[in-house]
Amino acid sequence: MAVSNDVLKEFRKIGSALFTTGLNNSHSGNISMRVGNRMFIKRRGAMLGYLEPDDIVEVELYRMDGNLAIASTESRVHASIYINTEALAVVHAHSLATTALSLVRDEIIPIDVEGGYFIKKVPVLDFEYASGSKEMEDILPKYLENYKVAVVRGHGIFSCAATLEEALFYIHSVESSAQMIIYLSSLGVDSKMLEKGSYENW
């Protein structure tokens, strides 16, 4: 089915930004937006940086939908986020620094100013099957009810917001914070010393 030009334009803008800034590799990651009780989501295996009209799939949120056969592997995770939170857009990326940090931290607390304004704290979640699993469907939305982003350990980051652009921004913001923590670490600085104490309880 054909998507409207409005939707295609937005998907191309965000998909391109995710790829060209290195937040995803050639085929990783996925994005979706909610419209009514449906969502538009990237086709499984499509290249986010080069989306064509057929690369965007419409999927029902509240009913099993045959389009899941071609939609992103994480489609039901996205759907569950829409059903259980107030999100209207979801972005998932395999951002390198964030994912790396998730392997050694149980939460990421930004130490930079921007992270302190917009993010404050990022939960890191463990799943036995950490890609499109029922466990992720059930647990991830519970965190995204109260946090803008959450990281699946060793996999990547999920961000939800009112718009794709806003969700993209949160992912970038966390990635910048993660890079800064890693840079400081390479300089021998323990970034935990610089964390704002009150964000542990955020």
């Binding site: 939707v7 334009k9 917001a161």
Partner: peptide, 25 residues
């Protein structure tokens, strides 16, 4: 969100998604 860009600007002339955004707003 259509003109003032708060929190992010979306296309003010677009139609798809507007009913959803308005309800949430």
């Amino acid at each position: 969100f259509e003109e003032l860009g708060s929190p992010r600007k979306i296309d003010r002339f677009a139609v798809a998604g507007k009913g959803t955004h308005v309800a949430r707003s």
